[in-house]
């Protein structure tokens, strides 16, 4: 059986990661930035799962770790949104480029 090679999964993960990175650095809306970061985490998860099957020593560990990563991503999304709400209440905006109180 000629399956899909490891490199295909890795390239897919790479492409998704790049898309997420670009989005995180370009988009103005904080929600979109957060979602882009989630996408990057997903790309990393794909790598973990792929290596758990096609790695040098295949084992279930990769999948377990991807579960941990998903958990952390969920926590991060929750906290990120809470920060977003607090910021929005103070600054009345969700645009990243207007949140420049670190200036000077």
């Amino acid at each position: 059986m000629t399956g899909v090679p490891l490199s295909a999964y890795l390239v897919l993960a790479l492409v998704l990661f790049c898309i997420g990175l670009y989005g995180a650095l370009v988009k103005r809306n904080v929600v979109i930035v957060l979602i882009s970061i989630e996408l990057m985490l997903n790309a990393a998860n794909i790598n973990l799962v792929a290596f758990s099957k096609f790695g040098v020593t295949p084992s279930i560990t990769g999948q377990v770790f991807s579960l941990f990563t998903i958990t952390i991503a969920a926590a991060e999304a929750a906290v990120g949104l809470a920060i977003l709400m607090a910021l929005y209440r103070n600054r009345k905006t969700v645009n990243v480029d207007e949140m420049d109180s670190m200036k000077h």
Partner: peptide, 14 residues
């Protein structure tokens, strides 16, 4: 250089 734009900092780092 210190614009306070997080994305700009991230971009430069990247």
């Amino acid at each position: 250089l210190q614009t306070g734009q997080v994305q700009q900092y991230g971009m430069i780092a990247f």
